[in-house]
């Protein structure tokens, strides 16, 4: 009993000594013409607890974010890992060409930055940054971010209400209000079930029919889809 009290005291002392490693100003800009971002999550973490890893299978938490925009599970995971985070700095959707800012104080050992946000309208596309080493030198750094495919859902490109739940096929919403209906569904041969670079949406030129509910002149994109500016103070 005495020993465990002592252990707790030591742990508490260690916790209170954990120093601020870096003060960061963050700015995220949506570079796309027709894609909204769901709530962003930016974490500073150690060399293991990234939000996602390319060419590996997505966690359920990442799948939940990529298919429906819900970051609660990712936040819980990051909290458990002792990551520092800026969650939902835009307080909702980040529209095309819009920017949002956040500040982040990192604790010792959290030397890497990761970022995720679902891209709407897509099935399981997300903008991501995977373990970017935070520079120790003060200055402003600009990083271009690419679009990833979580690999957890076929890109059928059909807007289906309620399809944001993991495992329910479809695009949960098109916030620009410019998607169509009545598509028959894209049959994609994309069999890569690991996280990969998104091949892009196809869309079609008929908003009431065709294969896709997306518009091919509005809902496509080219990389990079976002820019992250990090100011190390």
């Amino acid at each position: 009993m005495k020993a465990s009290t002592l252990t707790i005291a030591i742990l508490l002392a260690a916790a209170s000594q954990s120093t601020v490693a870096a003060e960061l100003d963050l700015k995220v800009t949506n570079l796309t013409k027709g894609i909204h971002f769901t709530p962003l999550l930016i974490t500073a973490h150690n060399n293991e607890d990234t939000l996602f890893e390319v060419a590996t299978e997505a966690s359920t938490a990442l799948q939940t974010m990529a298919e429906g925009g819900n970051i609660e599970e990712l936040v819980a995971q990051a909290t458990a890992a002792g990551s520092d985070m800026a969650a939902n700095p835009a307080e909702g959707l980040l529209a095309p060409a819009a920017s949002t800012t956040a500040t982040l104080s990192t604790t010792d050992g959290n030397e890497y930055l990761s970022l995720t946000a679902m891209m709407l309208p897509t099935n399981d596309g997300f903008v991501g940054l995977n373990s970017w080493k935070i520079p120790t030198e003060a200055g402003t750094y600009t990083i271009n971010l690419n679009a990833y495919d979580a690999g957890t859902e076929q890109n059928n490109e059909l807007v289906v209400e309620g399809s944001g739940a993991p495992g329910t096929p479809g695009i949960p919403a098109a916030p620009g209000g410019d998607a169509g209906t009545g598509g028959t569904g894209i049959l994609s041969g994309d069999t890569n079930t690991n996280i990969h670079i998104h091949p892009g949406s196809l869309g079609d030129d008929d908003l009431e029919a065709g294969n896709s509910d997306l518009s091919n002149t509005v809902h496509r994109w080219l990389n990079p889809v976002a820019q992250l500016t990090v100011t190390v103070k």
């Binding site: 013409k33 060409a97 030129d205």
Partner: peptide
């Protein structure tokens, strides 16, 4: 769609689904 400068989504072309 919006009167602002954004990145370009790319050319669709008549060989990739834009018949007009």
């Amino acid at each position: 769609t919006a009167d602002i400068i954004t990145m370009h989504p790319g050319i669709v072309s008549n060989q990739d689904g834009l018949s007009t």
